[in-house]
Design a protein around this nucleic acid. Structure first.
Length: 563
RNA sequence: UGGGGAAUCGUUCAAUGGUAGGACAACGGACUCUGACUCCGUUUAUAUAGGUUCGAAUCCUGUUUCCCCAGCCA
């Protein structure tokens, strides 16, 4: 595992870079960029791209720019820009002074467009949107040339200037690249490169009423920034000829190269921006940072760590195969990191009162408990013990099966870090028959020691002292969807997991958890990893999010027995 | 249907003409004051049919399957 973090990753993109370096193709320059559109929060799929682009820059001592690709004012906002900046920083990447906005290039891009018109490579088309679609043809039939395709350079220049000046309504004209209406690649059939859109831009306000299209803006932004490797996802493969066409027409010297890789798909969730927005807007989740969301802000609030996310991105690799990564791998990475770094504590989720009949009424003892069983340097804490305790309801069974080694009639169990107790009797609710209270006795010899007579007590359960513990709220999160690949379903909302959030309001946390720092993670022993909710947790009532449960081999045994 | 991509254990990534390997998952077992962690072990793969070659996951030919493209989104 240590080898993993020290050795450099390798993939087909890094192979290309290695080759370029070997042949000195770009004077040894390595420059990448991460170019999100600020119209939503970034998610684990973006994190893959962030790790790739920034990771390459780091590995080759190159640079990686952060560029907001904000060429369509609809839906873009500063709130999204801020969230993106915040999220990438949190992941641990730095673009130094290279924060750019495509909108900062609007004037330059306009001049590039003028240049394209002058060289006869672009024209103003006045077909309606419907007509443009019709003229485009289909997969099997070539398109038809627009009647406006042969306008003079002067007319095109005049029209384009007037488009900019705001003389025309939205949709009245567009600027198109003059390529080939018969191209088998539909992208190349005179693609639109500028459209009129009377929509205020979150950065340029009302300065512009024409906006460049992605295909035009992106490649030129790359070129302007001196990007060498323009890494994007597979669905842009069809656009690469256009990328190259534009760059070839307008850029001399070093030209950026587009390389495509397969975007991440994660099981039991969706990663398309459209669907994520829908979940937020229709309130199926409580915002972009809902801990069930695969967004970076959601995972942060859930308690995932940057290290876990980055390690996950390293594990999944980079290739061109469509993929659906098992979310279990992400959870593995989270556990791996938290097992190493999260201090342990005890917390009872579904309490059952236990009275130790032979323990003195007003006595309190403090047990020194290790914050981490394998890491003494993480220190100790004192945990109070008294006559009345709470244990987990699951840790008692009235009629336990043989393999169950917790508490039951006639059985003994070890209280974690404390005494061995023995079941004596139970109290039931007269009406419901539910067990409401247990009476036990403790063996005073078993403090920090095995039973004196050598008998074995296989079970160990967690507990809290009733008079010392802190009432807490705990939110148990489960996968957002009930099926592996909801993203492939048109009506994906039908597959939402109705139990993706379970809120427990009568939990009891050990005393030390009262001062838990917001956003900090713990392992609640025998249960899982939990994170103090950064938003809702208070000193009076701490709120914990379950990051991920511990692996539970008992659940498997119990589950098999039922079958 | 035209064009562009991709096919290797259940999932994913490697193997760049020379022993098909890793991780996750699954399944056994050991250990254990967390049924955690850790450790040990096991199962399972080159889409398909031909060809070239001493030797093919890799090269060639055909076939099949999957993904992307007909936004004035990115």
């Amino acid at each position: 595992m240590t080898e993993n973090t020290t050795s450099n990753p390798s993939d087909f993109i890094r192979d290309i870079i290695d080759d370029d370096l070997k042949t000195n193709k770009n004077d040894g320059k390595v420059a990448t960029r991460f170019p999100p559109e600020p119209n939503g929060y970034i998610h684990i799929g973006h994190a893959k791209s962030v790790c790739l682009n920034f990771g390459i820059a780091r590995q080759y001592q190159g640079t990686c720019n952060l560029r907001l690709d904000d060429t369509d004012p609809a839906g873009e906002s500063m709130e999204y820009v801020e969230s993106i900046i915040n999220d990438i920083r949190w992941l641990g990447f730095d673009w130094e002074d290279r924060l750019f906005y495509a909108s900062d290039y609007f004037e330059k891009l306009y001049q590039f467009a003028v240049e394209l018109i002058k060289s006869g490579n672009a024209y103003v088309c006045s077909l309606s949107p419907d007509e443009i679609r019709e003229y485009r043809g289909t997969f099997t039939e070539p398109g038809k040339e627009s009647p406006y395709r042969n306008r003079s350079v002067e007319e095109n220049l005049d029209l384009f200037q007037r488009m900019r000046a705001g003389e025309f309504a939205d949709g009245a004209h567009v600027l198109r690249a003059r390529i080939d209406m018969a191209s088998p690649n539909i992208v190349m059939r005179d693609p639109i490169i500028y459209r009129i859109k009377r929509e205020p831009h979150y950065r340029t306000g009302n300065k512009w009423v024409i906006y460049p299209m992605y295909d035009f803006a992106h490649c030129l932004s790359d070129a302007l920034e001196g990007i060498v490797y323009s890494i994007c996802t597979l669905e842009f493969e069809n656009n690469r000829p256009l990328y190259d066409w534009i760059v070839e027409k307008l850029i001399t010297g070093l030209r950026p190269r587009q390389i495509e890789f397969a975007r991440l798909n994660l099981s039991y969730t969706v990663l398309s921006k459209r669907r994520l927005i829908e979940l937020v807007e229709k309130k199926y989740v409580h915002g972009w940072d809902d801990p069930r969301m695969p967004t970076v802000s959601g995972m942060r609030r859930r308690g995932y760590t940057p290290e876990a996310i980055k390690n996950f991105c390293a594990q999944i690799g980079v290739a061109k195969n469509d993929n659906l990564i098992d979310v279990a791998l992400l959870e593995y990475c989270v556990r791996e990191d938290l097992n190493e770094n999260a201090p342990r504590a005890m917390c009872v989720l579904r309490p059952l009162r236990v009275i130790i009949d032979n323990y003195p009424e007003n006595q309190v003892e403090y047990f020194e408990c290790a914050n981490h069983p394998q890491k003494p340097d993480m220190g100790m804490r004192e945990v109070p013990f008294s006559r009345e305790l709470y244990i987990e309801r699951d840790d008692f069974m009235e009629a336990p099966p043989k393999k169950y080694h917790r508490l039951g009639p006639g059985r003994e169990v070890r209280l974690r870090n404390a005494y061995v107790i023995k079941f004596e009797s139970m109290v039931k609710d007269a009406k419901t028959g539910e067990v409401t209270e247990l009476h036990c006795t403790y063996d005073p010899q078993t403090r920090n020691a095995p039973p004196a007579d050598g008998r074995k007590v296989p079970g160990v359960i967690h507990w809290v002292s009733a008079q010392h513990c802190a009432p807490a709220e705990i939110r148990l999160y489960d996968r957002l969807f009930g099926i592996e690949d909801p993203g492939s379903e048109e009506d994906f909302l039908h597959y939402l997991n109705p139990h993706s959030l379970e809120t427990l309001t009568t939990c009891y946390a050990e005393q030390s958890l009262k001062n838990a720092k917001p956003g900090s993670q713990f392992q609640f022993e025998r249960l899982g990893y939990f994170c103090t909710d950064a938003r809702d947790s208070t000193a009076e009532k701490p709120v914990f999010n379950r990051v991920v449960p511990l692996r539970d081999s008992w659940a498997k045994i119990a589950g098999n027995d039922k079958k």
